[in-house]
Design a protein around this nucleic acid. Sequence first.
RNA 1: GCGGGUAUAGCUCAGUUGGCAGAGCGUCAGAUUGUGGCUCUGAAUGUCGCGGGUUCGAGCCCCGUUACUCGCCCCA
Length: 421
Amino acid sequence: MNIIRKPQGTLDILPEDSIKRIFIEDEVRRIFSNYNYKEIRTPTFEKTELFKRGIGEETDIVSKEMYSFHNDEFTLKPEMTAPVIRAYIENSLYNTSGIQKLFYISNMYRHERPQAGRYREFSQFGAEAIGSSDFYIDAEMISLGINILNNFGLTNLKIKINTIGNLDERKLYLEELKKYLSKHLNNLSETSKKRLDINPLRILDTKDKKEIEILDDSPILYDYLSDETKNHFQNVCKTLEKININFEVDFRLVRGFDYYTSTTFEIISDDLGSQNAVFGGGRYDRLVEQLGGKQTPAIGFACGIERLMIILAKRNYDYPKQYGVDICFVSLGNEARDFSFKAVDVLRKSDIICETDYLNRSIKAQMKEANKLNSKYVIIIGESELSSGKCTIKRMSDGEEKEIPLETIYKINKSNLHSIV
RNA sequence: GCGGGUAUAGCUCAGUUGGCAGAGCGUCAGAUUGUGGCUCUGAAUGUCGCGGGUUCGAGCCCCGUUACUCGCCCCA
């Protein structure tokens, strides 16, 4: 019979990787809480309408990459900003404080062709600060992301920032951009030609060399922005400088979602190949009202965990080792096995990590197993031990052994473990 | 949506001109009747992805197909 395989683009996270992810998640939670961000969890699926309205119908994600079901009524979440904002509005979080600083660690789903660092089920952590248009919060958001990455030893990162203004400010620019690009129509790619009508701003994001050359002489969005937007951006830049964050301004940095306004940013690592963005975000001052809330400024970022793990792997990041076992019980004979099982049951309640034999194997095989499990101690129980009331405890690091009364076993706990032998 | 690569033991992979299905690692057992690591010895594990074709004979050649994978597009 054929075996059933996991769906394409998904991962089985086996214990070896699981412990790495738990470590990353723990570190991320710790740093988020230093910045006083609170964790939010939302449903795995949402009404499809939320993403159509939030991300934009013309984006690639919404137009062709969503996992929708039940007559398209519901969709597995492809990103977290729209769900977080939905929850913010639905639960009236604006009534509990002027600013909400939220973070998440969650799985997302996009129906794309998988490749290195891109999966159909993937995980991200990210943050959203809702309620403030202050430039300090923009700088905090970027600083927060950088600090998380620095925490994992990643320091040679390229940080790009830009401002893309709001819809009204972009209107005139987009007309000029269209005019300019229309003159170079023959040299544009098919996708760019399509975008010229649908979403001309995205053309700025092209990787096509010919198009980049054309864009070098194109009108620049920044020149069309209001003084207010420009001032905000300059303040963000100045603030980043004050806290010693190196960045580069990239006027061509635009992002894939329609909801972004004003500040946008991205962190790029050369370790990633074509999927080089590990971290990205921006301000989305209109999203809350687009989703039915009151006009509320907000900003957020997201970081791909699989991509982060690829970078860490390439840099031979030293994850903490898996916890070893404290005590392995090696037992021979039915009565001894019975005794050992009762003993581990007691010790586990005293936070001693212990194991016993489940395969009724030879003493030698049990010793090998204990060694493989990296057990600190082994306690050997057989018929003679049961009748004499004493057993052997062996320290595996140096082979030192000691005889102890059986009842001593029950007194072992975390603090006296290492003074027994 | 487009293009490339790969598919042989649990894992990593050899397999020559078409001629007995292999290695290393891992697993299990023994050397040591109740003591791990090191060493030695042995054992088990195969639909050679699947289907067809050529051939006396196919893991190898041809055609098809599926899966995986990498890249493009796009995205975190």
